[in-house]
């Protein structure tokens, strides 16, 4: 099976590889995996004071499509609000990367990672509220 040019481009030149400070309350971390193929994907977002995603980083151990899906996801996330980020669908990734049917689960993984990262961020923000109220 041949990878599309876009997959190869992301695979050979992955965008935004790396990690953000997990302990930072403005950072949301999503760690997801697909046991079928043994892939594991970590995706992180840093949200600024206006609720916009200022930074997005990922690290994926898996096939080319999983790497490309998460690389593309981080590109799309930057500059989006948290709610806009949640609107990203795996089908958008499939279309952009021309993923074949056997690789659709890689895009699902990326969507799950976005959702996990955002929900981690939201949870941290909720936890911070009572502390600020007391202050």
């Amino acid at each position: 099976m041949a990878y599309s040019d876009k997959v190869l481009d992301h695979y050979n030149h992955p965008r935004n590889v790396g990690s953000l400070d997990k302990a930072d309350p403005n950072v949301g971390t999503g760690m997801v995996g697909a046991p079928e193929c043994g892939d594991v994907m970590k995706l992180q977002v840093k949200v600024d004071a206006t609720g916009v995603i200022a930074e997005a980083k990922f690290k994926t151990f898996g096939c080319g499509s999983a790497i490309a899906s998460s690389s593309l996801a981080t590109e799309w996330l930057k500059g989006k609000t948290v709610d806009e980020a949640l609107a990203i669908k795996n089908t958008d990734i499939v279309n952009e990367l021309s993923l074949p049917p056997v690789k659709i689960h890689c895009s699902v993984l990326a969507e799950d990672a976005i959702k996990a990262a955002i929900s981690d961020y939201k949870r941290k923000q909720e936890e911070r509220k009572p502390a600020e109220a007391r202050a």
């Binding site: 760690m31 997801v32 594991v40």
Partner: peptide, 9 residues
């Protein structure tokens, strides 16, 4: 498990 696998990788 994901954390562990990630760290090992």
């Amino acid at each position: 498990l994901l954390e562990e696998v990630f760290e090992l990788n």
